[in-house]
Amino acid sequence: MRQLTEEETKVIFEKLAGYIGRNIVYLVDNKDQPHVFRLQKDRVYYVPEHIANLATSVARPNLMSLGLCMGKFTKTGKFRLHITSLSVLAQYAKYKVWIKPNGEMPFLYGNHVLKAHVGKMSDDIPEHAGVIVFSMHDVPLGFGVSAKSTSESRDLQPTSIVAFRQADIGEYLRDEDTLFT
């Protein structure tokens, strides 16, 4: 486990900014309970500081996970967000899409968000921006990128895609073997 380098921080923050924009400051600047980013193997964890300190006593080969896993660095140096980061993203989300109950299961099975399933969505979503997908009861279900801006998607066909899925909570079941460690 170690702190992130300058380079790595930049890559991660660029990625996060796509979903939560300027809210990113709240992640780093939490006076009540200071949080830090830590890298263990190729994964990045977002942890309360006191827990990060305690975790130093655990040897690297034996430390499997701590706090909340944000995602992992690929071999090419890119950063990929994991579904486990959803609770952080949902909290500070900039653009949101709510889907109707009949669209929940198709989305959780790994399909993109269709126009017919959208219950409501934020007004100002531009094209190819990171969006968080919620159910109508405000339960976060996953995240992705918008296929069209809000105004354009108003006059789409019911079967056309509004947002491309990147991750959904169905992965807890589907990808349990690869998602963690």
Partner: peptide, 21 residues
């Protein structure tokens, strides 16, 4: 520990450290 980490993340327990000793 895989299923352990999966459950911890799914249930949103952020105060945990998972180790394999």
């Amino acid at each position: 520990t895989k299923s352990l980490i999966a459950n911890i993340h799914r249930l949103g327990c952020t105060n945990t450290i998972v180790c394999n000793y």
